[in-house]
């Protein structure tokens, strides 16, 4: 599973940031919907990988972020729901969210030149160590 790699990156980042924490009391992970990552998969690996490294894990909270795209040509803002995309396209964006630019255009002017303002992928929102 490639969620293993995503979770491991979060674990490495947390531990690098905090030195040698004994416990992650609270962790908030933001999941941009463009990447269609299942929170249960990330949580499973986060708990397993942190415990393997001797770190206790308290509450893990996931916040799903809607996708917001803004056209650079005409300024139009819109959203898109990957669960309505063809399965192959959803899978490409699951691995590499930037692939969105190959498959979607601005609904107002037709341009591929737009910005992913929000909802791209996985990142750490908040963390409380002990």
């Amino acid at each position: 599973m490639h969620e293993w790699a995503l979770a491991n990156a979060i674990v490495d980042a947390l531990l690098a940031h905090a030195g040698e924490p004994r416990e992650v009391k609270f962790l908030e992970i933001r999941l941009g919907k463009l990447q269609s990552v299942a929170p249960e998969d990330i949580e499973f690996w986060l708990r397993q990988l942190l415990e393997e490294r001797g770190v206790k894990v308290g509450e893990v909270k996931f916040v799903q972020e809607e996708v917001v795209l803004r056209c650079r040509r005409c300024g139009h803002e819109w959203s898109l729901d990957p669960s309505e995309a063809p399965e192959t396209v959803r899978e490409y964006m699951h691995f590499v969210p930037e692939a969105v630019h190959a498959f979607y255009r601005c609904p107002r002017c037709g341009s591929h030149d737009y910005e992913v303002v929000r909802g791209r992928g996985v990142y750490i929102g908040k963390v409380v160590f002990r």
Partner: peptide, 16 residues
């Protein structure tokens, strides 16, 4: 990941 289509990207998206 693109089915061989054009993939226009700028600045931060290229890094990303």
């Amino acid at each position: 990941f693109t089915e061989d289509r054009a993939l226009p990207l700028r600045g931060w998206e290229i890094s990303s």
